[in-house]
Simulated assay, not measured.
Amino acid sequence: MNTELSVEELLDPLQTVIGVVEKKQTLPILSHVLIQLKEKKLTLTTTDMELEISASSKIKSDSEVTFTIYAKDLIDIVRKLPEKTLIKFKIEEKKIYLNANKNTFELNTFDHLDFPALPKTQNTSVINIKQELLKELIENTSFSMGNQDIRAYLNGLFFELDQNSLTVVATDGHRLSIGEVKQDNNLEERKTVILPRKAVLELTKLLNKSSQSNAEIHLSDNYFSLIDVDTKIISRLIDGNFPNYKQVMPTDFSNTIVINRTDFLSSLQQASIFVDERTKGVKLVFRDDKLSIFSHSERGRAETQLEVTKQEKELEIAFNIHYLISVLEKLTTREINMVIPGGENKSCLISATDDESYQYIIMPMKI
């Protein structure tokens, strides 16, 4: 069986699906990409048995053929060829020969019927959402996800949906990010799922390159999928109970300090030069409507100061400086509210002064 595809036709969908392919696979066929040509449409699919991505594009070829090929080798070949290059595929039972200009490549193949697919989902709830809104929700919360935490439910993004809202939450046990949007979800009952970290990262890539305005989210008991015109991503969900994030929300708002966000961010970035890399801690001292920021390491120390308003209590408290910086980089307003109830074990709540769509909680630390 022979067919032809141009680099231009292959590269974009291949780049979309390649992130799923791991270097080490339990099954050799999982290192392959499934390529399907049908009705002048090219569809590429990859999977690691937990996550599956398919990307499609229109093509000129009339061929109707399905085969698998080693994904990493294919993308390395395609990336090194000019965009208009035509690649001829000669498909045999165990080998595929690629001919591009005067170059020939020989790659292994498997029976495409052995390529695994995730099961069809049942009892699925379908949510329609603007892609730009979903992208913003994920980007403004996912940085707080756990990474290889023994508690699997922390290594993902929590989605909570009801009839009128979508809430996205991430935590690694030391910080917590919450994003909420109001929208009509047409659900009969509340739905919660935990999307694994790898799926979140691939979903973010997909949303960053998509030109579609809306997307469909399909939620079942075990799977999450997002479908737009040319791409589909399906992921198994994390089985576990996400922590009750509402329990760590401060209840005492008497000490809500207003701070200029850009000044605070700039001061922290300067203080970070002398932060101990082991503790990553920075001390904040609130006194007389001023915030003093102290950091020190073996190389030296730094003190920066800025004015604040509505300070009710004098206090000293320490945080991981990178946690503070990451929150201030996500918020975009001129001023932020920083709720610090006081006491060593009290969490700090940061949000924009005029919008509580995004709320960030950071636990204090000892330094």
Rank of each mutant, 00 (worst) to 15 (best):
Q212Y: 10
K346R: 15
S31T: 03
S144P: 00
M363P: 04
D276M: 02
I87Y: 07
M363H: 10
E83H: 13
I336H: 04
L237D: 03
V275C: 12
E8R: 13
E312K: 15
P364A: 10
E64H: 03
T68F: 01
F319L: 03
V126G: 04
G146E: 13
F143A: 03
N260Q: 12
I361R: 05
M338E: 05
K366D: 11
S6D: 07
I259F: 04
E189D: 13
R175K: 14
F286D: 09
D263L: 10
G19Q: 07
S61N: 06
D172L: 05
E136T: 12
N222K: 12
A117H: 15
Y245A: 06
L154K: 06
L14R: 01
S165N: 13
S225T: 05
Q15E: 10
L201H: 11
G281I: 04
I150Q: 14
L30T: 05
V126M: 12
Q163D: 14
D48A: 02
L86P: 02
K346A: 14
I18D: 08
D354R: 08
F253W: 07
F294V: 06
E202I: 05
V248K: 01
E139I: 08
K72G: 09
E314Y: 01
A352N: 11
T332D: 14
A117D: 15
N101I: 10
E8W: 02
G342H: 03
I59F: 00
Q305F: 02
P119I: 00
E216V: 06
F67P: 01
V65S: 06
D76C: 04
N155D: 13
E22N: 11
E277K: 10
P119L: 02
F294M: 04
S266N: 13
F89W: 08
D111F: 08
Q122I: 14
S61T: 15
Q305I: 08
A318C: 12
A117R: 15
V17M: 04
G19N: 01
K283V: 06
D288P: 00
F264V: 00
N255L: 01
L81G: 06
N208F: 08
Q359C: 08
T171M: 05
K280W: 07
F264H: 06
G342K: 03
E52F: 01
T304I: 01
T353L: 07
P13K: 03
T104R: 15
H296D: 09
L203S: 02
G156T: 08
Q163V: 11
S54P: 09
E64G: 07
Y358M: 06
H296T: 11
N337T: 08
Q131T: 08
D355M: 04
Q247M: 06
I127Y: 02
Q163P: 02
K232R: 15
I194M: 08
E277H: 10
G179Q: 05
L349Y: 07
E106S: 13
T45V: 12
G343R: 12
L201G: 10
K232A: 09
